[in-house]
Amino acid sequence: MRPNFRRPALCLALAAASLAPNPPAHAAQDGKARAEQDEARQKLQGVRQQIEALTKDQRETANSRDSANAGLAKKAEEVSAAARAVRETDGELAQRQHDLDQLNQQRAAMQGDLGKHKGALDDLLRATYTLGRGSDLQLLLGDEDIDRISRALAYSRYFQENRVERIKGLLADLSRLQDVENAITAEQQKLEATKAERQKRAGDLEKQRTDQQKLVAEADAKYKDQGQRMAALKQNEQDMNALVAKLQRVIDEAAKAAEPAPAPKGAPAGPALGNLRGNLPWPANGPVHAYGNGVIIVAPRGSEVKAVARGRVVFANFLRGYGMMIIVNHGNGFMSMYGNNETLLHGVGDMVEAGEAVGTAAAPAGDNGAYFELRQGGKPIDARGWFAKKH
């Protein structure tokens, strides 16, 4: 029995962002720029609020028609939160391990330097003994030549001063080494605590996944035949069409009042999606087959689903029939949709770059997996001709 998320989903676009002009030379221009920034931010916030309101209306409509939808949506969001927590803990583990490796390398280097300092100090002590073979007092009491005594005393003072400085340096190195040793111990303790937290969160995630599978099975069991299933899927698609139509009106109004978002500082803007036909990067890895208006990519659970081009997230929520869905607007009427995510890594209003992870794939079931669809002007377009050829 195929899960509902395999059906192609409809999507929306958003063209609203804050401006980031260069600092003006005059106070009047500066005030005008700040006013424009404030106005742009308010418009973007207004669009977000309208999208959230429309999403809420869609959810309530679906819940009133199908009581199981509320449970499915809540459980999908709980699984998403648990999976994201595990992912964040994995990132923290990797960073702590990196820090620990750096400290161990630092300790090894300091121990090597310490050995050199000890060797140099040993040589100095031997040289001092060989030079005097006794104390400065013995030199003065002997019947040696006065010039030789003067030279010997000068050398003796030099070696003694050098010895004192080397001893000070050695003690300082030992102190720094002890600090590094303490830091290593503290970092090891943090690493162990993070591993324990990761294990706990992974256990919570598995429980949420099991509960979700039960809910999905219960929702599927209510369909008595294939006809009822197709009718439900058709209803989902009609609801999506209505929602997209409302969202498109909001987006069109926002596009007239707001300028496109500038590229993040230090990141050059990528090529427009419309120029990537035949060279579009794949959003996920795995076997691919056509489905409806898009494609199914049988990606491993937890693997990253990546944006195919630079754009702004305009939808990130649960949709009956599509699972956890994220939609990115790329400008010029182009939108990309990423369905059946286990967790979403961005929210409405976030700017994402080409190749940046926007979600992680849910567990594939048979020939089902991550869903991808392209739209232009609100209409589905065949994505298969846009992807780069796989080698």
Rank of each mutant, 00 (worst) to 15 (best):
A76E: 09
Q58P: 00
Q29S: 10
R176L: 11
Y223K: 04
K190D: 11
Y155A: 06
D99T: 10
A254M: 08
Q49L: 09
A232K: 06
Q235G: 00
R48W: 01
L344P: 04
V250T: 13
L177G: 05
D204F: 06
M337I: 14
P300F: 02
N63H: 11
R163I: 01
F334Y: 15
E192R: 15
M240D: 15
H289N: 15
A269D: 10
Q42L: 07
A27M: 03
A83I: 13
L276I: 00
G321T: 06
N69A: 11
G132Q: 01
R2T: 08
W282E: 02
L170T: 10
R148W: 11
A357Y: 07
N63C: 05
Y155L: 11
L280D: 03
G339T: 09
W386M: 02
V79S: 06
V313I: 13
D145M: 12
Y322P: 02
G266S: 09
K118A: 13
A309Q: 05
R65S: 07
G359Q: 07
L93G: 06
P287D: 14
A154L: 12
E36Y: 04
Q50K: 13
R126V: 14
T128Q: 14
A290Q: 15
S135R: 00
N4F: 09
A94S: 09
N241C: 09
G377R: 05
E78C: 05
M324I: 00
G347Y: 06
L276N: 06
E253I: 12
R198D: 10
R310M: 04
F315K: 08
D179T: 13
A290W: 06
N341K: 03
G112D: 09
S80P: 13
Y129V: 12
L114W: 03
A261S: 12
R148T: 10
L124I: 01
T128L: 12
L93H: 04
L233A: 05
R249N: 11
Q45W: 02
T89G: 14
G270P: 12
S336Q: 03
R2N: 10
P8Y: 06
T185H: 11
S175D: 13
A62S: 12
I51L: 15
Y129T: 08
K265R: 13
Q208R: 14
